[in-house]
Design a protein around this nucleic acid. Structure first.
Lengths: 120, 120
DNA sequence: CGGGATCCCTGCCGATACTG
DNA sequence: CAGTATCGGCAGGGATCCCG
């Protein structure tokens, strides 16, 4: 076990680095959780739920998630245009883990903030 | 369920944002996983395992994790000095989730990279 | 050995204005 | 409505030098 050490330096192939590079940014995980709750949402609906995100960052975030095959984008050829976003199957296999993470955060956030105050 | 919508905009109290602000950075989760595997490590040992991290960032990362009560620091009053780092109990409750995340990443990384190539 | 202190640069992200 | 284009601030992070 200890003689076969993983490669913690290899940025290209380290799965953790790779997964964090994808939704470790400011908004991705929030969008994923929102879509997980609401199933299908239009662009401006997401924008309203996450009140503090800028239009630009929402666009960038959705494109990145779409490129990773985590979010599906359906555009309807209407005027005015309508675009619906939803989670892919791949993203749905990820959500239970995200939920666990959120639960852990909920339980431990207060204590962590206390720890931080003592040190700072 | 759908009429009681969570507050996705509240940055201060959103647990996901709060947890990601803590170890969503470039190195924290990697350090946590390394310490989870090796139990106890000295500063320079961590530095060698994660070959690409700078001394400064390792210092910053460890301080942040210590402030959050996720890493314990033991300094021995010797010359030359010796400092040992290990996970706290709180961090150990987090690690199963991190492991799940890593497993998910391992399984899906290749497919995600394929998706990305098609789009880009 | 285990850091601190500084300099500097990249890129994330926000704000604003414009478009089909 | 659902974006695109552009400008700019500033924080994350790397490189280097210094210290007890």
């Amino acid at each position: 076990m200890e003689n076969k050490v993983k490669n913690y330096a290899d940025e290209e192939h380290c799965p953790v680095r790779n997964v964090l590079d994808r939704f470790g940014d400011k908004w991705s995980m929030l969008v994923l959780m929102l879509l997980s709750d609401m199933e299908v949402l239009r662009f401006n609906e997401i924008h309203k739920y996450i009140g503090t995100i800028s239009q630009k960052m929402l666009t960038v975030t959705l494109k990145k998630l779409e490129a990773d095959g985590l979010v599906e984008r359906k555009a309807y050829p209407e005027i005015p245009p309508r675009v619906e976003y939803s989670l892919t199957k791949r993203a749905k296999t990820l959500m239970p883990i995200i939920q666990d993470l959120a639960q852990w955060a909920n339980k431990n956030m207060a204590d962590i903030q206390d720890s931080r105050r003592k040190v700072v």
